[in-house]
């Protein structure tokens, strides 16, 4: 995905449109903060999630965090490769390191999120 076409949350998730579905992952900043990622817990396909609901989890040696759904929807697919190769999140956070795809989304909620410029501003103001 092209970072300039994505929308961002303050919890460092990104969401982008791919055909009928919306792809979700964590940002380059987030993967840097976590360090070497050792484990990703993915949701079950078919689960209905609300906006900002805890949907996936990510662990590194020194930290663990929850991944929240940036917008409401139904889990349409998950990136099963991450179960054996969690390092893809470090290597390619906007590509091979995606977490899950959402269908039946509430697209109106996208307007609650930041665009790339706003997210960069947000990071500049919140360096930790």
């Amino acid at each position: 995905m092209n970072p300039s076409e994505l929308k961002y949350t303050e919890d460092h998730e990104w969401v982008g449109c791919a055909g009928d579905l919306y792809v979700v992952g964590i940002t380059d900043f987030a993967q840097h903060q976590l360090g070497d990622i050792t484990f990703v817990e993915l949701p079950k396909v078919g689960r209905v999630v609300k906006q900002h609901e805890e949907t996936a989890a990510v662990e590194s040696v020194k930290a663990a965090g929850d991944v929240y759904a940036p917008i409401a929807g139904t889990i349409a697919a998950v990136n099963e490769t991450l179960e054996t190769q969690p390092e893809l999140v470090n290597q390619d956070p906007y590509g091979e390191g995606w977490f899950f795809r959402l269908g039946h989304v509430d697209a109106a909620q996208l307007s609650d999120l930041m665009d790339e410029a706003a997210y960069k501003d947000f990071l500049a103001k919140n360096p930790d």
């Binding site: 662990e59 590194s60 020194k62 930290a63 663990a64 929850d66």
Partner: peptide, 13 residues
Amino acid sequence: TLQAREQHIRREK
């Protein structure tokens, strides 16, 4: 190992 789940990192979670 798996220390990231523990209280000194996750605190109330």
